[in-house]
Nucleic acid binder design. Sequence first.
DNA 1: CGTTTCCTGACAATGCGCTGAACGGCGAAA
DNA 2: TTTCGCCGTTCAGCGCATTGTCAGGAAACG
Lengths: 219, 219
Amino acid sequence: MRILLVEDELMLADAVRDHLLASGEAVDHSASVVDAEIMLRGTNYDVLLLDLNLPDGKGLDLLRDLRRKGSATPCIILTAQDQISDRIEGLNAGADDYLVKPFDLNELSARLAAVSRRYSGNPNPFVELEGGVEVDLAGRSVLRDGEQIDLTSREWALFDQMVKRPGQTLSKRQLEEALYEFGAEIESNTVEVYVSRLRRKLGRDVIKTVRGVGYRVEG
Amino acid sequence: MRILLVEDELMLADAVRDHLLASGEAVDHSASVVDAEIMLRGTNYDVLLLDLNLPDGKGLDLLRDLRRKGSATPCIILTAQDQISDRIEGLNAGADDYLVKPFDLNELSARLAAVSRRYSGNPNPFVELEGGVEVDLAGRSVLRDGEQIDLTSREWALFDQMVKRPGQTLSKRQLEEALYEFGAEIESNTVEVYVSRLRRKLGRDVIKTVRGVGYRVEG
DNA sequence: CGTTTCCTGACAATGCGCTGAACGGCGAAA
DNA sequence: TTTCGCCGTTCAGCGCATTGTCAGGAAACG
């Protein structure tokens, strides 16, 4: 999914981009309205993430222009403002959703999924895996033989990463970064333990071990 | 059938009223939100026809207020806007149907008939949940083992959100937005308290806790 | 066969969620 | 108006699921 992020706070922009890239999305970033207009001219994006407080103009005007030109690209507004009137103005300008800073990056993912699902008209983004396991990434739910399986937040964080990249082998280090925020080297076998717990819940065939490298989920 | 038409475009309002009167319906008309509130206080209407672009306030707020007070009066939204986000917001606020201007008067009649049929005659599609709990989303009624359960407006606001997305885990943040117009950050455990009360009324198995994330009701 | 890598049962500490209780506000009734 | 009762909200303490760690065993590799 191609995403254009329009945001002038570089720290936040980096965090968002990293998170989305880690989810396998393609993210372009621009820090101003003029920049964004140029990007939009050159590429067709699937979703627009738009900050309202931009240095060189109102973000809402950018959105209104887009809509005036007939673009239907889904747009999620990011803002520090917390006023109902702003929200209404945003939605009237053609926004699809609205996130107030500070927001949780996982919530951003969920909203992105919801918005894009809305537009594709496909209500069931279920991923099917081996062993009768189905995963709804946006809804954070897992079925095994049709029955709901409960995953704890750590278990889901790990599994989520693997399901998003089916067929790819992920190193333990990569998976560790899904568990802990950033950096923090850990010299334990936490990932192994969680894989073990996941296998008990989901069956042994879903997660495959690649000895000396890491783990993999088949597509 | 008593119908309240809330519409500030007088030409359109007249046309609608004439058409409905010709069909033998009783139509009252108000052109503003305050006016509508007064009318609603005095009369029990069978259907509410609600324009969203009113001069003195958002029509949606009127609808939300009604629902918050426990009213189940069917509501059809009339609007010039055709954005998916509006539609979703409208339905979330408790609307039953949605007509985009310009619309055909006969289509309006048909929808009116459909909505009122839904409410009067045969019961609506009941959603069945665990523990002998049935939910009528449109009629906002809940049965447990065949007995009516009374929910307060906040309880319903929360439960409604969850039942509409069975199988999906909703974050406390998302659920908070059902309680308040626009919750910025949660500094309290209000959602937990309401879940606790709902469980007392509906049984413990209906709402499942997903620790570290939120809550879910099974499909 | 030895070595390396991975699996998994057990366990203690932590932090999250649950719930009883109390407070304040608002509308209805008197 | 005052009173009463219901509803929404906050708070604090308790109980327990979750989590990270370790150690012994199993499996894969040379």
